[in-house]
Design a protein around this nucleic acid. Sequence first.
DNA 1: TTTTTAGACTAAATCGTTTAAGTTTTGATG
DNA 2: CATCAAAACTTAAACGATTTAGTCTAAAAA
Lengths: 346, 346
Amino acid sequence: MKKNATIKDIARAANVSPTAVSMALNSRTGVSDATRQRIQAIAREMDYQPNYFAQSLISRKSHSIGLIVTSISDPFYPELALGVEEVVIERGYSTILCNTKRSLEIERHVLDMLRSKNVDGVILATATRDDPHIQPLLDMRFPFVLVNRVITEFPAARKVNYVIMDSYSGAYEAGKHLYRLGHERIAIIAGSLQTSTGTERINGTLQALKDSGLDYDRSFLVECGFEREAAYQESLRLLDQNPPPSAFFAHDDNMVLGVREAVLERGLRIPEDIALVGYDNIQTTALSGIDLTTITAKQYEMGALGAKILLDIIEDTTRNMINQITLETELIIRKSCGYHLQGYCR
Amino acid sequence: MKKNATIKDIARAANVSPTAVSMALNSRTGVSDATRQRIQAIAREMDYQPNYFAQSLISRKSHSIGLIVTSISDPFYPELALGVEEVVIERGYSTILCNTKRSLEIERHVLDMLRSKNVDGVILATATRDDPHIQPLLDMRFPFVLVNRVITEFPAARKVNYVIMDSYSGAYEAGKHLYRLGHERIAIIAGSLQTSTGTERINGTLQALKDSGLDYDRSFLVECGFEREAAYQESLRLLDQNPPPSAFFAHDDNMVLGVREAVLERGLRIPEDIALVGYDNIQTTALSGIDLTTITAKQYEMGALGAKILLDIIEDTTRNMINQITLETELIIRKSCGYHLQGYCR
DNA sequence: TTTTTAGACTAAATCGTTTAAGTTTTGATG
DNA sequence: CATCAAAACTTAAACGATTTAGTCTAAAAA
């Protein structure tokens, strides 16, 4: 790597002081138009690139943010990451991507790394309900925004900025939907009880069934940690029970695809024998032959909005407000729930 | 954000010079064990974090690399990004993710941005065959590795480090496979002729058919730029021709899913009426009911290996060798080609 | 006892930029 | 023509670390 020209080199070439060069290149007043143009020409000539480290050392800004997800290979996250990245780059920042593999320890490690690299802020998509890393971030007034999942422990829960979906309502709607289609034995393939999305989705569905006058059999609720393989295994187990569930509500689409494989493997038809509802509306669910009924998660919007809020926090140190945004969900009815065959029966 | 303790603060507290502190914390000789421990204790006490900008200003290293993809929401890239990120973080670096949306101009912009942020190197997954941004990178001896796609223009092509799949062989095998299944009217839903993967995959298939004694009708070859929507539209058009193709080979799985939708929309069966072969072996292709025959692309391996090579280049300035790695492909035979129904007929 | 030398430590320069605090030049005003 | 303010420009001090070139002390060697 060839060494870049510095402001001093330009100053020497233009026969002015480094200060003059700095002022000229940053379009600040203090130099005449004539010298400004002369300096700019020389800078261009020398292919001058300001040294970012030196600038950052003074400004204490890195113009980069961290994005923490469990794994970018989980189909939930790419759209979210895209939303973040597009907003961020638009405003002159860049995005450092980190995967935690659902490990709290890696999350801590990654947060430390990001802070030591002086990122200006972090978008955390992996927060658990009692995430121990949130309060320290608040204490040191480090800018961050939670997306998709929130911390539910007080007092931190009241203080954090977040953008989430209304998981409770989404799950409520899913529960009502399955009930009105006639289902009473509804398996809930739950995400993680450690996450707000997991518990909200459980509570939403349970409430819907309760409101419908249904007594829920808790043995139909299994925690699968948002992992496809676990969902697959647990589904096989549930299908072998007597009586088996007549419907499955999985807390994300990745898991519902695991459920689907299990159902098909047992030679059962979807939706005639088993109804399926997923969550997130990832691309795959819309394919013919998959046709999964699911709930929108607006990954892109969460990412983009989270990024916007984070950058606003970073750039506007005066304002002191807490942004807590909940986006509305929508039930996307496709074929896997059987609605197209019969409509609601109650 | 509270201001961090600096080396000077520690020096003052420990009643030594900043130099001593620096030496103590970097386990360099020059301080006695006693003072070293005293200094380290004070540093811990003050929760000292070295200022990354100041360190980088001297070392000229940012310990971060750029990863450039067309769009992280394209299902091809998440696994690749994961491979990069896992290797990179393991070695104490971090990954800045950038999307070009297939625009050369954005690619240039993003490269400029990354260089101005002093990333130590770049993994470029978006190179076109005559990418104008490669030669300048070579000229300034900027560390970078191409993955998945390479530049084919000389002399740059001989000088770049890359990790790619053997697209030609993969496509050759796909062509042979379809031929031996009895197909003669094989539509090629090509990626982009601007990319090495696109042209290699065309050439591979054409050679396979030529070797089989088949005269290929070029009107069955359409360029769809690795876009699902284009693949869908072009497939509809081809299916409406007389005679229509009996098989489609799409240059990535995202496009083959578009083809699949078109075929189903026309009321045709897969594979009985139309055989399908894709490329990349993305997760979706393995689902029951999708069952696409496809070709492995080893996204994770390409990413991981590319990252490893890049970091080796960055850290070892003495060595001066060019790494050009081609990974072998494998045909994954599932149901969409019809092999399971009849086997090869020639 | 004197000389040598290794070890412990420090002062000051450096990395490349910005910025606060001057100084000089220019041109307008009375 | 003297006066003064604004404009143009410079000097020097940051930012927070590392590094080079010392200095000083104490123990070992002569």
